[in-house]
Design a protein around this nucleic acid. Structure first.
Length: 190
DNA sequence: GAGGCGATTGGCT
DNA sequence: GCCAATCGCCTCG
């Protein structure tokens, strides 16, 4: 189990070190394969302009969930690192509870079950009620990674400022990324 | 108080 | 490739 000191480090390092870490919600989940780092000095971050009602949990304790609604209909989850910094979890491998994931997501290709922040939250049943919850307590379970992964860094997805900063981290060779490592535009086929 | 827009996704052309 | 869905948050007046 990762303790809070893991999350209270440089946010880019946390984002790298989360690749390969398993995350479950009520025993549904898998290994993280794609993350993005955000901090308050970053124009692309929700916390760039200081605390607001929405981003309050990002300014709270580290090692908690920051869950926000995107485009009015999707939920996305970050891991908080304290002081307005956090790591967006963009994709995991569907390892445990795949039948539950398929039921929640509808009949889709398994590669797309958790390939994207909105898809991932839908598959794990994460919504606004999870905002601010500690990650080291139920319904969450965080597992240690088994081996040192090979990681590729590249530009983040879906932002309009600070687009060139290489703050997206992907597990090399994963089939479950929201789009290929290093790419700059959303995956089209789906 | 009003208007614009988004750390997305899925469907249609 | 383009665009709608959908609504809360944020900015500005």
């Amino acid at each position: 189990m990762l303790d809070h000191t893991f999350f209270e480090r440089d946010v880019e390092q946390v984002a790298r070190d989360l690749i390969g870490v398993s995350i479950f919600v009520c025993d549904v989940g898998g290994a993280i394969v794609e993350t993005e780092a955000y901090d308050p000095g970053d124009p692309a971050a929700h916390t760039f302009r200081g605390p607001t009602r929405r981003n309050a949990s990002m300014f709270g304790p580290a090692a908690r969930a920051y869950v926000y609604r995107s485009h009015g209909l999707h939920w996305c989850m970050n891991v908080t690192c304290g002081h307005g910094a956090g790591v967006l979890i963009r994709a995991i491998t569907p390892d445990a509870g795949v039948a539950v994931m398929r039921a929640r997501r509808g009949a889709v290709d398994d590669r797309l079950l958790c390939a994207g922040p909105g898809r991932l939250c839908q598959a794990l049943g994460i919504d606004g009620r999870f905002d601010g919850l500690p990650l080291d307590q139920p319904p969450f379970t965080i597992g240690l990674r088994e081996a040192e992964p090979t990681i590729t860094a590249g530009p983040r997805i879906g932002i309009s400022v600070a687009v060139e900063l290489p703050r997206r981290f992907c597990l090399d060779g994963s089939r479950f990324l929201s789009r290929p490592a290093g790419a700059r535009r959303p995956r089209r086929s789906a």
